[in-house]
Write a protein that binds this DNA or RNA. Sequence first.
DNA 1: AGACGATGCGGAC
DNA 2: TCCGCCTCGTCTT
Length: 267
Amino acid sequence: MPEGHTIHRLALDLERDLVGHRVEASSPQGRFLEADRLDGQVLRSTEAFGKHLLLHFGAGSVVHVHLGLFGRFRRHRHPAPPPRDTTRLRLVGPERTWDLVGPTACELLTAAGLRGLRARIGVDPIAPRTSREALDRAFDAFSRTRRDVGAVLLDQGVFSGIGNVYRAEILFLLGIDPATPARDLSRRDFDAIWRKARELLRLGVAERRIVTVRDAGRRPPRREALHVYKRETCRACAGPIARTTSANRSLWWCPTCQRPRGESTRS
DNA sequence: AGACGATGCGGAC
DNA sequence: TCCGCCTCGTCTT
């Protein structure tokens, strides 16, 4: 679930259900004791950037949630089922209850902590607007590193919100060999990656899932919605999909369609 | 009952 | 570069 599109979708859904309302907050699991301090406060707004979710409460409390690999939010109609033993945070609104389970982070943030978090997060393709300066800084980091482009796409300090599925799909769609050193790519390539990331992640927010294949039809099964991720054969050339490792994660790619420099482009 | 994996990340070396 | 942590559905024994 959790790449950037999931977090932005969550921010919207939580906003719709809970913002403007006094919320009952608790930590059934007991690992987020500060929930008591939130109990009865009004949720003022929700915010997503990269894979981070912020809940801004009335009295100035800011809750930072990062789902990590396993974290999930579940939404219940009332009456909600009893929380599980693992429920880190339960938020009860007027009509819906939200349960957070398994997050990497669920914590109150100080103003300094919030500044630090914002400062270390790179440009977010889902954000409505991104300054020229921020984009130039991202390109700067992109063009200086010795790492391969596959690793850089996962670096949340450069681009934020891209995860292991989107990186494989973006590189395929742009015809780029994932082992290409990032600094060998041009500004034009960088811009193409940025545009493709914006297109795909924003579509993911709307669709509530990752879909990178055009004409996949409505609600296609997962493997029909993707080009290369965890696939055996290439959707374009029917050749075998290769699996390599980049930034310690598996990366699926097509050695025929993806070349050291992205001269071939498809969509 | 137990093993395994997963769309993530920080810290130790 | 590797390890550990967070959880749970699915698969195997």
